[in-house]
Design a protein around this nucleic acid. Structure first.
Length: 500
RNA sequence: GGUGCUGUGGCCGAGUGGCUAGGCAGAGCUCUGCAAAAGCUCGUACAGCGGUUCGAAUCCGCUCAGCACCUCCA
């Protein structure tokens, strides 16, 4: 029995608001699309949370044995400063302000984004398409929407006709918005407006003479609207109906609602079976966002170089911190919580090292110990298959860590566990920590030179202790501690170390 | 105003109506030359008020408090 059959995944589908059994379009395959960043600025910690959430989702599916195609786009054109389809393109604006080519802006922030993803051990997607690379496709689908009667041209721009769409299908199925109310509330159309209704949105915008980013189209020299790129790139690489579409909660409306309308209007079929929305990172209860000024960047986080930060924290500490909550809940940032997470993370990682060092030799097998270990293995899968409950999974890993430490100290005889069960236990702990949750050693720069040097000091300390020269042995220990190397004395005279 | 969500022990945070979440902090103990690390033990918390039920943190209603989206934001 494969893991896929043994641990069916249930996930909360934003479309229904309920937890549903996941059934893929093609058995054993997963097609998932996640809205990526608009590369006009640095990604902040709140952005990181979203990508980390979906990183864990895709990691788990892969671990179960799914063949995953993960598409995450780069928005490098079309994202306007406000959603009334007016205002400047974000990339263009940045380019103008910094006197750069738009593509220089795009390259710079795309590379910065990738660097941050690497730091947090967020794996790259299978395909990372860009909006500017799919202008032709966007023009094609816009034509199709006009042909189908769901879009109209006005003065060189093309808009999606939400009212027309709503007559045949239903607009608002994802966000629960009522079209009549949307029509009433907010700003009125003025006489200058090209839109027939205020809730219509742009598929193509005619560029003003001074606009830098522009492409030819049947309607005008211009650029595509924001929502259309995701519809195009998701269906192009994943098919007209694919499994999962993810993104931050704040994109649910209007972005994702518009995506659905575009895809249905063009293809007359439901584009996505399961929508997953990850919740916001908050600071003092408020959403972290650039405009509120309460956001900070990863490099500020590492350096502790921000008014909100008492000190610096490692990327893995933050990863652990985020995994302790469920992706669908808001998570409040605080220094206290980060500090606690740092210790918890170390406990998990230290146990990983201890596990690797265990030498197994089977003697008499104790059934109750084995049952306990098998239960813990089972729990890991059950919790992850239950809507990717990383918090509960971590709780189980802490229990496993306690078992590992018991084996290490001899509190429990490792020889009472059969080879088979121990191997399962070991593999499960290792793979859940490293492959599924994506936690790794914070200090990967540990090299042989450093290790060798510390080993020499450890040998000196051992000697000093045997000679009962505690002044010297304590000095070695305390001085190493000063520079961030913590020694851990074992019962049998062995000494390990951890770099803090 | 509309839509949705949340309110859990000192802190952070899981929780499918009944059976211990977990982490951090704190107290005691074990181990240790002393520490650290590790292990063991200890807290009976679920905003308030009603209701349903044999039984509710978990379901329903009301009240209070807070958040998100409805403008750009993951």
């Amino acid at each position: 029995m494969s893991l896929i059959e043994k641990y069916p995944v249930h996930l909360t589908n934003s479309l229904s608001g309920k937890k549903e059994l996941f059934v893929p379009v093609n058995p054993g395959h997963l097609g998932i699309y996640v809205c990526g960043p608009t590369v006009y600025n640095d990604v902040h910690l709140g952005n990181v949370r979203t990508f980390m959430s979906f990183d864990v989702v895709t990691r788990y599916f892969r671990h179960l044995g799914y063949k995953v195609r993960y598409v995450r786009n780069i928005t490098d054109v079309g994202h306007l400063e406000n959603d009334a389809d007016e205002g400047e393109d974000k990339i263009s604006k940045k380019a103008r302000l910094e006197q750069l080519e738009p593509m220089e802006v795009v390259m710079h922030y795309t590379e910065g984004f990738h660097e941050v993803m690497r730091q947090f051990n967020i794996l790259p997607p299978s395909i990372e398409p860009s909006a500017t690379g799919h202008i032709v496709d966007q023009i094609e689908i816009t034509k199709k929407l006009i042909d189908n009667g769901f879009a109209y041209e006005a003065n060189g721009s093309v808009y999606f006709d939400v009212t027309k769409y709503h007559e045949k299908y239903k607009y608002g199925i994802l966000s629960g918005r009522v079209i009549e109310e949307l029509m009433e509330s907010g700003r009125k159309l003025d006489s200058q407006d090209e839109k027939r209704n205020k809730i219509d949105f742009a598929l193509w915008k005619k560029a003003s003479p001074y606009h830098i980013m522009r492409w030819p189209s049947p309607w005008s020299d211009g650029f595509p609207g924001w929502h259309i790129e995701c519809t195009v790139m998701s269906t192009k690489y994943l098919g007209d109906t694919f499994d999962i579409h993810g993104g931050g909660m704040d994109l649910k409306f209007p972005h994702h609602e518009c995506e659905i309308a575009q895809a249905v209007g063009a293809n007359d079929q439901k584009p996505v079976n399961y929508w997953i929305h990850s919740n916001m990172l908050t600071v003092n209860g408020q959403k972290m966002s650039k405009s509120l000024g309460n956001s900070f960047l990863p490099r500020e986080l590492f350096a502790g170089d921000h008014a909100l930060l008492d000190r610096g924290y490692g990327a893995m500490t933050v990863r652990f911190f985020m995994l302790q909550s469920h992706y669908s809940s808001t998570l409040d940032f605080s220094n206290d919580a980060l500090g606690a997470a740092e210790k918890g993370y170390k406990k998990i990682i230290n146990a990983l090292a201890a596990l690797n060092a265990l030498v197994h030799e089977q003697k008499e097998v104790d059934d109750s110990i084995e049952k306990d270990l098998l239960r813990l293995i089972e729990e890991c899968y059950k919790n992850m298959s239950d809507d990717f409950n990383t918090a509960k999974t971590l709780a189980v890993l802490f229990e496993m860590a306690a078992r590992i430490n018991d084996f290490k100290s001899g509190n429990t005889q490792l020889s009472k566990v059969s080879k088979d069960v121990f191997d399962q236990f070991k593999t499960t702990y290792q793979s859940f920590v490293k492959d599924v949750l994506g936690l790794r050693e914070e200090n990967e720069q540990n090299n042989d030179l450093l290790d060798g040097t510390i080993q020499i000091l450890i040998e000196l300390r051992k000697k000093a202790r045997l000679d009962k020269n505690f002044a010297l042995s304590d000095k070695i220990r305390d001085d190493l501690k000063q520079v961030g190397v913590q020694l851990k004395d074992g019962k049998d005279g062995t000494i390990d170390y951890v770099i803090e």
